[in-house]
Design a protein around this nucleic acid. Structure first.
Lengths: 147, 147
DNA sequence: GCGATTTACATGTATCTGCATATATACTAG
DNA sequence: CTAGTATATATGCAGATACATGTAAATCGC
């Protein structure tokens, strides 16, 4: 059973994660831009080999539920930010690529995203504290991956 | 603009918070219990004076959107876990109290919740690291409250 | 090389959330 | 007082999410 400190820290972690994301989402929305999930997909695609990924690859990288990603990609395709073509190697599979409009959208989102991170989060900790936090969270996240 | 470490830490924070919550939600669901939000409301009520709070008080303590809480309370009332009566002091207001069934539900949820925290989170950090993480998150959360 | 299982992805349906707005009461200025 | 504004709560509607399940192709066991 967890001790008091662990419980308190867990609650803080949940709250800090939620408010951090909400702050960024609010800025994106205020700027008339799509939500964070769209950015994540665009970014994964842009840095992938050939700017292309299979849905199941995006799913595992972003820890999204399969049905959730399926519909997210449908919306992004409808918005013209990604393209979809059947995989030649795997008859079940699709290949998702980022369009030029998708890359442009990601470039428009980034400064808003970055400024929101700095304002809602970066400004609150010194560089060395940020490194300490990073190291601790890294261990929390890595532990979760195993399970 | 944020530096690389800040961005990386922000992403870790968002991911750690989300997976931490999801791990607990999954355990609650597997045990046939209501989601975390219900627990939070029950807990706030139980530790409040007279085990009663106005909706707007719950809202500010849990950082919930007003319309979201309104509907959450409706569901919990339908499930018999809370009671609602009009406020005598404020004609606009309601007073929410926890029922005996609500208190019993919270007691049933707690061990599942606690075990999930320990497994998904507590076991990954030593006691002293947990204290360090707590102190850092505290500063992140406090900063967010100001804004 | 064929049935059984697994993997990749989609979708119907129910529930939840967000947004805008409604309703009613309280407060405040003059 | 009264008009205007602010606060407390609810709700119609649209969009997003969760769950269960469907479809199709790949892989595995024998």
């Amino acid at each position: 059973m967890p001790d008091e400190t662990t419980i308190h820290t867990w609650v803080l972690l949940a709250r800090a994660g939620r408010t951090a994301v909400e702050a960024v989402e609010a800025e994106l929305k205020a700027a008339g831009l799509p939500p964070l999930g769209w950015y994540d997909v665009l970014w994964e695609l842009e840095r992938a080999d050939d700017r292309a990924l299979r849905p199941f690859e995006i799913e595992s990288r972003l820890l999204l539920a399969q049905y959730n990603l399926s519909r997210l990609l449908k919306r992004m395709e409808a918005a013209g930010l990604v393209d979809r073509r059947p995989s030649t190697e795997d008859g079940r599979g699709h290949i998702i690529t980022i369009t030029e409009a998708g890359a442009a959208m990601r470039r428009r989102m980034w400064p808003v995203y970055a400024r929101a991170i700095e304002a809602a989060f970066g400004a609150r900790l010194s560089g060395s504290d940020m490194l300490r936090l990073s190291a601790l969270l890294e261990r929390v996240v890595r532990g979760a991956e195993e399970a």
